[in-house]
């Protein structure tokens, strides 16, 4: 309870600031229009106008919420949930690329981590590069991957998923290596006294004790995969997906459309990370790991 009140206060403060900023930023256009029509705007009219423009510089929250509802819930009620104007459709395009990439990236990451833990040569040669590659702006090569795969004839979902996979790959590798190495000498010694084979040590000790680390990196990887899928939709002028909605919005000055796509992406990211967090809590509880 003593957490909810401060959070609500901060969120409320953000909303107040947002509405106030919208007045300041949209004022010029409103005054321009009024000046051309030869009307003198009262303060109340001015505020009402800045909060209800069609193409505001900064749309206010209720406009974004209306647009979100219009392109999701209202579409579902009309039975056109998968129409091209529906954000559910665009969100699904992005989500499918994100999930596919996430699964590929996580799988490859876990495999590489297992290899690194069991092979010293691999550890010494690959690990420094895996860490160094995190300092490189990998997203910059997204357009190249898209175009190159396009010219080879691979189109649609896979190139975007590839970028997502690449972005979620390294956090998982680094996290899993840390996790698989987390059992201390005492525990490893115990298994040795049981004369456990390397295989048994892996399945019964290393893998279970790496779970907390795995979930932390899964959350980072999921957020990165979504960013990858969105950025993957930008460079080729894609017409479907949340990134494409942002791009077309910025071409045609449809600010409300950009903001609604942005919020859809944010909601998507929050729920994906939330789902992983939920699985994490369930699983760690059953395994008896303290939260």
């Amino acid at each position: 309870m003593n957490k909810i009140l401060p959070i609500l206060t901060v969120v409320a403060a953000i909303f107040v600031l947002w509405y106030a900023a919208a007045i300041g930023m949209n004022k010029k256009w409103a005054l321009d229009q009024a000046g051309r029509a030869g009307i003198e705007l009262s303060t109340n009219d001015l505020i009402a106008d800045t909060w209800s423009q069609d193409r505001p510089v900064l749309p206010v929250p209720h406009q974004v919420a209306q647009e979100l509802w219009k392109t999701t819930g209202a579409m579902v009620l009309k039975g056109r949930a998968m129409s091209k104007r529906s954000l559910i459709f665009h969100g699904w395009i992005t989500l499918s690329a994100t999930l596919l990439g996430f699964v590929i990236g996580t799988g490859a990451g876990i495999l590489l981590a297992v290899g690194i833990v069991h092979n010293r040569a691999m550890d010494m040669s690959v690990m420094p590069w895996a860490i160094a590659s995190q300092t490189i702006p990998i997203l910059a090569i997204a357009p190249m991957i898209i175009v190159v795969l396009n010219s080879v004839g691979i189109q649609g979902l896979l190139p975007k998923a590839f970028i997502s996979a690449y972005l979620s790959f390294f956090p998982v590798v680094v996290g899993m290596v840390k996790g698989l190495r987390s059992p201390d000498g005492m525990q490893l010694d115990l298994l040795r006294t049981y004369s456990a084979s390397g295989n048994e040590t892996f399945w019964k000790l290393r893998l279970p004790s790496s779970m907390p680390y795995l979930f932390t990196s899964l959350k980072i990887g999921m957020a990165a995969a979504l960013v990858g899928a969105i950025v993957g939709e930008l460079p080729t002028g894609a017409i479907r997906g949340l990134g494409a909605r942002m791009l077309t919005g910025s071409y045609y000055g449809q600010t409300i459309q950009i903001w609604s796509a942005l919020f859809a992406a944010a909601i998507l990211a929050a729920s994906l990370v939330g789902i992983i967090g939920m699985i994490e809590r369930r699983m760690l509880k059953r395994m008896g790991v303290k939260p």
Binding site: N2, K3, L5, P6, I7, L8, T9, V10, V11, I14, V57, L139, K219, A223, L226, V227, I230, V231, L242, G243, M246, L247, G249, S250, G253, T255, I258, W259, A261, L262, A265, A266, A269, A270, V273
Partner: peptide, 25 residues
């Protein structure tokens, strides 16, 4: 602190790069 930390953590996990078209405008 209690209010800003969770909100900040939440925002840090969002695809903030999406604000790029807005800021370029």
């Amino acid at each position: 602190q209690r209010g800003l930390l969770p909100v900040g953590n939440f925002i840090a996990a969002l695809p903030i790069i999406g604000t790029a078209p807005i800021l370029v405008m």
